[in-house]
Each structure stands twice: as C-alpha cells, then as structure tokens.
Simulated scan of single mutants.
Amino acid sequence: MPELLHIQPIAPEATYALRHQVLWPDKPLDYVKIAEDAAGHHFGALRAGEVVAVISLFVTGPEARFRKFATRPDCQRQGIGSELLKHVFAEAQRLGAKHIWCDARQDSAAFYARFGMQPEGEIFYKGPVAYVRMACTL
C-alpha cells in the first residue's frame, strides 16, 4: 500500500467534491450526486488525513457495482486507486457479492483489466465521454 495511506468508510457527502473535481468539473455539483448514495457504501483513501481518492459501492444480493471512482489528479499513478479498488472488491465479497461491475470510461478500461475485469457489451456515451461496462466474478 502506498506510504501512509488509510482507507476508511466515509459519508456520501464526503465524496462529492472529489467526484466533481475529477469526473465532471464542467457540470454543476449536483450532477455527481446519485439517488442511490444513501444506500451505498462509500470509501475514501486518506493520506495525511486528507481524502485523495473516493469510490462508492452498491451491493444487491450477489451483484455489486462500484461508481464514482475518483482519485485527485496529483495523486494518480501512485497505487492509491489500486489499493482502493482492492479494498472495494474485498468489501463486496464480505457483503455477499459474487459478481462486480462498473461503467468505466473507455480510456480507463486497461486499468480495470489489470484487476480481472473484462468488457461486456458495446461502447456507450454519457455526453461526449465513451464508456464500456467492465465486470468480473469475485
């Protein structure tokens, strides 16, 4: 794990600023909030007490989905997101999920493939951004 990194549960509201900054900076803040946030499990990767990456996990029976995975730009490519994703996979398993998926930005698909996730279905778009569903068995 990257030096002095701590992963812990956080409130949904604690994810919003980073979701907005990294994923949709050109949209209003409300754009990064999702109706299911209250039912999710939200995790933050903290370094020196500051949230530098966030992810939200939603588990329904054997199915798990993670959403709004964002790492602060100056903290990317340091292993922080990898540790956070491993944590979420383990948490999904602990909660009884057998399968996990996400709608991944197409330019991030290779990152998810390193964790055993494979593309499912066709490329689709959210605004101008190309996405592909990535999934794997836990």
Results as ranks from 00 to 15, higher is better:
residue 129 V to T: 15
residue 10 I to W: 01
residue 136 C to Q: 06
residue 89 F to K: 02
residue 71 T to F: 07
residue 107 D to W: 11
residue 119 P to A: 10
residue 12 P to G: 14
residue 23 L to C: 13
residue 70 A to L: 06
residue 133 R to W: 08
residue 62 P to Q: 14
residue 31 Y to E: 05
residue 79 G to S: 04
residue 102 C to D: 06
residue 91 E to G: 00
residue 59 V to T: 02
residue 100 I to H: 04
residue 124 F to V: 09
residue 120 E to S: 14
residue 102 C to Y: 09
residue 51 V to I: 15
residue 101 W to L: 08
residue 18 L to R: 00
residue 99 H to G: 11
residue 23 L to V: 12
residue 35 A to K: 14
residue 24 W to Y: 12
residue 125 Y to R: 12
residue 91 E to W: 08
residue 9 P to N: 04
residue 118 Q to M: 13
residue 58 F to M: 13
residue 34 I to N: 14
residue 97 A to Y: 05
residue 74 D to Y: 06
residue 59 V to I: 09
residue 58 F to P: 10
residue 65 R to L: 11
residue 23 L to A: 07
residue 98 K to A: 13
residue 18 L to H: 03
residue 68 K to F: 13
residue 10 I to G: 03
residue 81 G to S: 07
residue 77 R to G: 10
residue 3 E to S: 13
residue 5 L to H: 05
residue 2 P to Q: 10
residue 36 E to W: 10
residue 92 A to H: 02
residue 71 T to Y: 05
residue 55 I to L: 09
residue 49 G to W: 03
residue 74 D to F: 08
residue 84 L to N: 01
residue 18 L to K: 01
residue 16 Y to C: 09
residue 47 R to W: 09
residue 3 E to C: 11
residue 34 I to H: 12
residue 14 A to W: 07
residue 134 M to E: 02
residue 9 P to M: 08
residue 100 I to R: 05
residue 21 Q to L: 15
residue 90 A to S: 11
residue 81 G to N: 02
residue 64 A to Q: 03
residue 78 Q to T: 07
residue 109 A to H: 12
residue 23 L to W: 01
residue 71 T to K: 01
residue 18 L to M: 06
residue 37 D to M: 13
residue 123 I to L: 05
residue 102 C to W: 10
residue 128 P to N: 13
residue 58 F to Q: 15
residue 104 A to N: 13
residue 53 A to I: 02
residue 94 R to V: 05
residue 65 R to P: 07
residue 19 R to D: 04
